[in-house]
Structure formats: C-alpha cells, structure tokens
Design a protein around this nucleic acid. Structure first.
Lengths: 126, 126
DNA sequence: ATATTATTGCGAATATGTCGCAATAATACA
DNA sequence: TGTATTATTGCGACATATTCGCAATAATAT
C-alpha cells in the first residue's frame, strides 16, 4: 500500500509534533485546525503506527494515546520506555526512563505498555 | 458503606482465586457457577478494588482485568509488579518482577500499570 | 420478626474504536 | 496537461466495554 501525502495527515502530525505529548483521538480532533472525521483520525494514526512514525500506548482509562517519540525518530534507540500520565493536566508523555526487567524463563516478550500515573512537575509546582 | 456477604461475591472471589490469573468481566461471567449480571460483576470487582482485595490492570486491548495478588494478600509487599499478557492463551498473570524506575524530579507517581506482552512459557513449549 | 439499606438484575445510556461503502483527491504516466 | 488508478476521506452503522438509574431482593442488626 503506497502512502499519499494529504493535508489531513500533515495536520495530525503537526498537532502531535507541537504538543510533544501523547494524545488521544478526541484531543487530536479538538486541536487540529481542519475538521477531520473520527474514523479518519484513527485510520491515519494506525497507519502512522505501522510506519513507525508514532507509537501507541493504552492508559488505565482504556483509551489509546499516540505520540511521536525519540524511539521513532532514531531507530537505534529501540529501548522501550515508561510513560507518565498526569491526573491533573490529563497529559501523557514519554519519559526517558527505559523499562527494565528480566522475563521469567520461557517467556517471550514482544512489546511493553508501561505507564506511571500521578501528577507531573508542572502541576506539582502550581 | 458497610459490606455484606453474598453468594455472588463469594463466587466471583472463588473464580479469581482458583484461576490465579487476571480475568476480565466476561471471563469471570463465563466461569462463575451462578448466573451473575454483567453490571453486578463490575460493581463487585470495583468494590473489591476499593477494599484492596483485588487489583485492576488495563491491557492494550483497553479492557480491564482483575486479579488477586500477593500484593493484596500481604500489604507489606507494596511493590508494584509487572504483568504478563500472553497473546496465545489470552491470559494475564502477575509476575514477581518489581517495577523499578526513578521518577523525574517533581513527578509524583501514584500507581503503575505495567504490562509485558508476548507468549508465555506454556505456550512456547507447546 | 422486622426495619434498614446493601446488593442485584434489568434496561438503557455512554464511549471508544472499527468497518463498509461511495465520493474525493493524490499520484503516475501517456 | 489530461487521464487512469487507487489511496484517502466522510458518513453512517456497528461492536464492545463499562456505567448508571431504578425497582426488587436479600443480608444484617436489633
């Protein structure tokens, strides 16, 4: 499937890029300048995931969040990292903290989804 | 709110206890001997969470899973732990691997939701 | 035995995410 | 530059997970 450049894709990427955090579909829909359909946003985001442009994490609210991250930008940094979800400002950000563990014998780990929840620095200062 | 003992609660706890793994609402509904309403199962499970009888984790499928765990049984062991979700046998289990990290300055962590996904030992042998 | 109120079942409501289909638009190529 | 191909989009509908209100039932204490 050959990709095509569209204003919609640009706009969504723009939102993710300037936000610097992980955003959910509805957050993206609210921030994007164009009016983009819900299903389209999901399709674009899932495509970005396939192409390793963004990565997806699922929070304890059961929702999907999407973020551009260093991991995606430079593929050498393949280490999985923790994410932080702030209960006060509702943001989710990528932390530069690698996820470290030793899987039990016989267990094969394919991917991780690791989330710390609490209040972030900005919210604790205020 | 004073708690009352009911057959429903006993049965649900029984299922979680004998399974030894984290189960979703529908998995519990299928395994429980009594016929219990969906909403009731959620209410009971959420109450168990409040009372620290079980703990909840959210998987990348966005669903909630509930498990009795050592952490709940002996409160001294307050360390958060990783969970493992097997894509082959669809189970989620508590691993005895503590979640270790150093939160960035100013960040307050309240709870964690850490999941490793892959294939478990039983499934890798088969 | 009875009053109090926690618990349950039922139906409906909400929310998230996906899918099929038809219309539109991006790209390649003559 | 015009045209064919097909990726993309919007729309509506669908599936699923979870919650909520309300009335009926049942667990506990007196």
């Amino acid at each position: 499937m050959i990709r095509r450049n569209t204003p919609t894709k640009d706009a969504i990427l723009q939102v993710l890029s300037t936000s610097g955090k992980a955003l959910s579909q509805d957050a993206i829909e609210r921030r994007v300048e164009l009016k983009v359909n819900r299903a389209t946003i999901y399709r674009v985001l899932n495509q970005f995931c396939e192409d390793d442009i963004v990565h997806k994490i699922v929070a304890e609210d059961g929702k999907q969040y999407f973020a551009i991250c260093r991991k995606c930008e430079n593929p050498e940094q393949v280490v999985d990292h923790f994410h932080f979800r702030c209960l006060s400002c509702e943001s989710i950000e990528c932390l530069q903290i690698p996820v470290e563990y030793t899987a039990p014998d016989g267990y094969a780990v394919e991917r991780t989804n690791c989330l710390l929840t609490g209040t972030c620095r900005d919210c604790n200062i205020a």
